[in-house]
Structure formats: structure tokens, C-alpha cells
Design a binder for these strands. Structure first.
Lengths: 134, 134
DNA sequence: GTAGCTGCAAATTCTTTGCAGTTGT
DNA sequence: ACAACTGCAAAGAATTTGCAGCTAC
């Protein structure tokens, strides 16, 4: 049977409160404010368990370490800010992409990652180029 | 100045002869048939150098270690077969995806990975379900 | 009371780096 | 000659695992 430990609650809460997928280290940092002695191994063990229970899902971006978020309802994609490296959910989808595959290939699914600047970093980039804020 | 070592030639040849992106370990295995004493560190160093020279490009798929292939000409994406795990180039692109990002976000680029069955594996999957070949 | 959980440290896996010896030009 | 390159082994970074003590139920 599974237990309700302080550690697991803190890990769950950390992810629920973030509005974006978190790296294991980010989960640790957030959860340690509630449970100071928390260890990274416990974070990994709980992330794995929560994914298996279906409460969390792993978000894999190309060339990035896995992040974790609450299981959402719909198919969605991600956006990574090239300045702050944070990842955000994108609730849109280009739609049917079967036409892109070579003839004879069957497309069942897809992953899409957008790259650019998030709202917080757009003004910073503009300022760095000496442009006035919009 | 850059040198033409046996090791570098073997690494180049291994990648040129494979018709798919290779993992560093696969490059090592292939290149060692020509240069038996070759070490993995040399493979990594040369892969990095060849990418910087623009001869190779890294292929990052979500949750996968990086693979390396000869540089292609255009922006393109990848298709991974869920049965044989092989990766293929996709020379199409959904186009401008800015509309998908949240308001205030600036989209500069994107990565797309399609998943499904490649031509070789579609008949196998059909057969496994007891369906007649088309 | 006890099975599951936790923290710590050691082990794994993939990749990078330091170093002393080797080699292409 | 001599700077670039190589193999080896050690160092790193991310993740997993072994273990003895702790704790929810």
C-alpha cells in the first residue's frame, strides 16, 4: 500500500503549484521549502512512482533532461524560452501532419517544441538591443 | 589547422556509410573495424569538431541520446518508427507556428518529431493483427 | 509491528577533460 | 619541430540503487 508522507505531499504540491513542467532539481528546490531535509533520490523515486500511478507525466524535449507536470486532459505541446530555458505548455496543435511523412509511412502521433522568448524575456531581449519597450 | 588522422577518417566514413543518424557508440563500433584501438573519447571529440565545422549535425529526439548524421541542406524534421526505432528525415514542415504560442511569446524556431510505422513496418503491424496485406 | 519510505552514499550511464605520449604537415 | 590529435583514466552530470534507520497506518 502507498503512504502519504510529508515528502510526497511536498513534491506533489510543488508540481501542482508550478504552471509549467519542472526538472527534478526544480522540484527538489521547491519541495525543500516545505521539507528541508528532502533528498534528490526521494524526488526521483516519487516522480517515477507518480508517473506510474498516472498522476504525473514526463515531458521530454529534444536534448533536454526530462521534466514533470500534472497529467493534462488534452494533447498539447511545449514552448522553451531560449533565454531563461523554462518550458511552458502550448494548448494548440498544427493538426494532422500525416501529409508530411513519406509515402507508405503511417503517422500515429507527433511531438512539437517551439523555441523563442517567453513573455518575461521578450522585454529583456528588446532592451538588450537598445530598443524601446513596446 | 586541422589534421587528417586515420581516426577522423574512420569516423567520417562510418557516418557517411550509415543511412541514418548514429549514436556515438554506434559510430565507435563501426569505426573500430577500421581503427581497432579507437577510443570513445576520440569519437566524442571528433563528433563535436565535425559538428562545429558544419559537416555533421546532431539529431536530438525527445528522451533519446543524441545521434549524428551528415548535414542536410534544409530545415527538416524526423520520423521515428515505433517498431524498428529507426529515424528518417521528413522534408516537409507545417510552416509558421507562431499562432500556437501564448500571447506575448515570440516563436523563433521549432522541432517536430513524427511517430508511427515506417514503410517496412506497416505490413508487419498489419500481419500481427491478422489482417491481410493491402 | 511492519512494510514502505527516507536520506545518504556508492554505483551507473553518458559525456567531457587532463595529461603524457604520438603523429600529420 | 610542434601544434593538433590520441588513448587512457579520472572527472562530471544526471539518475538509480543498496542499505540501515524512520514512520505512516
Amino acid at each position: 500500500m502507498e503512504r502519504n508522507t510529508r515528502q510526497r505531499s511536498a513534491i506533489r504540491a510543488a508540481i501542482a503549484q508550478a504552471n509549467r513542467p519542472l526538472l527534478p532539481q526544480e522540484v527538489l528546490d521547491a519541495a525543500q521549502q516545505e521539507v528541508p531535509g528532502l533528498g534528490i533520490a526521494t524526488v526521483y523515486r516519487n516522480l517515477k512512482a507518480l508517473v506510474e500511478e498516472g498522476e504525473l507525466q514526463a515531458v521530454h524535449l529534444p536534448g533536454e533532461n526530462p521534466r514533470f507536470e500534472l497529467v493534462g486532459h488534452k494533447h498539447h505541446h511545449h514552448f522553451q524560452c531560449r533565454q531563461c530555458q523554462r518550458v511552458f505548455d502550448v494548448h494548440g496543435c498544427p493538426g494532422n501532419l500525416s501529409r508530411l511523412a513519406p509515402k507508405g509511412f503511417v503517422v500515429e502521433d507527433h511531438d512539437l517544441t517551439l523555441y523563442g522568448r517567453c513573455t518575461s524575456c521578450v522585454p529583456a531581449a528588446r532592451a538588450a538591443r537598445g530598443e524601446p519597450a513596446k
